[in-house]
Nucleic acid binder design. Sequence first.
RNA 1: GCCGAGGUGGCGGAAUCGGCAGACGCAACGGACUUAAAAUCCGUUGAGGCGUAAGCCUCGUGCGGGUUCAAUUCCCGCCCUCGGCACCA
Length: 793
Amino acid sequence: MYDFRAIEKKWQDIYAAEEPFRIDLEGAKKPFYNLMMFPYPSASGLHIGNMFSFIGSDVYGRYMKLLGYDVFEPIGFDAFGIHSENYALKTGRHPAELTPESIRFFREEQLKKIGAIYDWRSEVNTSAPEYYRWTQWIFLKLFEAGLAEKRESEVNWCPSCKTVLADEQVIEGQCERCNATIVKKTMSQWFFKITKYADRLLENLEKIDWTEITKNIQKSWIGRSKGTTISFPIESTDEQIEVFTTRADTVFGVTFLTLAPEHPLVERIVQEERREAYQEFLSQVAKMDDATRTSISRSKTGIFTGAYARHPFTNEKIPIWVGDYVLYAYGTGAVMGVPAHDERDFLFAKKYDLTIRKVIACSDDQLPYTEKGEMVHSGEYSGWASERFISQAETLAPFLKSKVQYHLHDWCLSRQRYWGPPIPMLYCENCGTVPVPEKDLPVLLPVTDDYIPDGSGLSPLARHEAFLWATCPVCGGKARRETDVSDNFFDSAWYFLRYVSPDDSKKAFNSERVQKWLPVDMYVGGNEHANLHLMYARFITMALHDIGLLPFEEPFTKFRGHGMIIKDGQKMSKSKGNTVNPNDYFETHGVDTLRTYLMFMGNFLEGGDFRESGLDAVKRFIGRVWDLTALPSGPSSLKAKIKMAETIKRVQFAFENIKYNTGVAALMELVNSLQDEQALEPSLIVDIARLLAPYAPFISEEIHAMYGGKGTILNTRFPTGYDVYLEQALAEIPVQINGKLRGKITIAQNATQEQVMEKVLEDGRLTAYFQGREVKKVIYLQDKIINLILGSM
RNA sequence: GCCGAGGUGGCGGAAUCGGCAGACGCAACGGACUUAAAAUCCGUUGAGGCGUAAGCCUCGUGCGGGUUCAAUUCCCGCCCUCGGCACCA
């Protein structure tokens, strides 16, 4: 009986004492950087989803180590941010006190026990001044490069977290962390200009080996849309209204223009007799929250300004309206109304009785007709195809200009919270906005009990007099500090750079080591971060590259987004009470069993269904592996060696393609087929342990040591040399008659069609099928299949 | 609405380049061991049908067509589920 408790403890202790996975960051010969998304420490511990992710990543790292790579597998803690702070607020304990406790539990009671090949010397903690000093430094670098800017704009405010959030952190109008409904506020905030990189962020996706799903999520978030801007002169002023459209071909169908209610132009053009109605309309719109305003089903309302524009092609008078369905933040904040060929414009025109003019050929009952087609009633362009007009638009008239529009917005970085790195900026009465000099970093987060956010729009740090006032480094006068802290996602946007130089007090990261180890060779994590962490990390890397601090622009050469795990067919949640605590299983089933089961449960990239009955099955499997060591030592049968050769291929395929479940299945098959062996060579048993080592570290180490192996099994090599037995295997060839499987023959490999046919003809059951019929055609694939096509009766 | 991924036994899931569908595991059933149970081990297990039996036949990968000697895999048209985006002009 395999005593997993004793043996796992033994190897956990050896890993802790001997640190066999420490990496020589300077001297490693075959560097391989294997990264996993580091966790947010919270007092509840790592949940099973984190474990699933980390183990899936570690399996890959262990496999690469068996292939002889110097695998650098660091781990750390994303310890700043709303996640940790909200937990602290809920429990009434100070985050500075709670966070180290959580980290200790994660590290000592969880991560050190799972047999992962972490190099603990590289641990980072984003809330440590030694780390966030460099987060602030990177902010300054971006500021110098003109990529950080404080500006007033409409931002997302979470009334429950009492802070602003970035667009990416608002999910369907709700806060990503607490699900509270977001409201729009106009505030002055720090932004990173990620939109300057929109095109490169999009184009580079073609060059990186990432899961398609992840790339697709980023693509649609960036939301590149090519179109045209068209200028309409406003009557009796010298101002213009510029609209953005992807359908310039419908320009002759414009019968009105609509401006967003917030558009500053409205104020200037609204006619006196309409002003009161406009004010009334504006206050109606202001009352709506964003979710209501942008709800697709809501009926569109608007109001006429009393002003007119001139159609740039026809000089026709066009009424200017204000409509709540036009968003100020997208495009130019103004649209041309083409009711015949746009769903919304059509509804709007019907409601307010505006002219509908057909300019794309279609029948009247098809309106609104939104397909492209042949242009009609379009002056000299009548008869043109939509595509032709759109692609040539810019060359047709001076008031048409090509424009590319993005969904991606600049990254709002400010947070009116306590638990984060203070943004290192000063406001001096004489000199204005001044960056904190590098030598004064870090701007320390003050230790205070007065840290609860008040919803005033200012961080709690604004209440902290000792923090607030500083000396202006330019004029020596009095300066006020920026009191907002930066977004948690900024901390994690560069942590993979810090891992290679965790103790460097002179630099954020060491260039030689960056050169040697980065970009990351393999990154594993959840797709929920596709638009958040993964997008931000790409942006920061690109920016640092342009500043000249990094030699590459993409941080993660290969990324695999894993699936979600559910429990007994249902989503796990605290409210349902069906969460899984991984530590429970360390005791009842063992780490090896838990790891192997998590990988066996389903396709790692698609997720899986956690069931205790499956865990029991894997425990039995681990027991059967152990029982192999009880067999007498002696020559293995040819059958066993052939099976071993096949298994090695299948297991290797599974690792390479992240189909871990099929690798476990292949090993189970192997162990099942060895059950009736009389004896096995020790080398074969150790080779089985090598195949198993990425999944189940401890039993593998123990078997390796039992047969005299020194050090960790991962320093030996992935099994080879069994292919010779494969050649001796017989081929089993399915025999089809008229495409239907009718039997099988067994024959030496590489047999000719004649040899196979000879065997077929010896088999009375097969020949019975073609009594009295000629074999018209034979399709034979060597060692694969034979198909006999018979003539008719 | 648009974009993407997927749909395979009672269940989780396999099938690498168009070539034996259902590997591996769960559950279920039958058996061995046991005073009994648990644990463990062995066997059966897609559906329907034929046969005393060895065995055999038909159907079967969301639905409907097609290409092919051969389709879970390729093509066309639908349905459904999940993920992303969404009054985006």
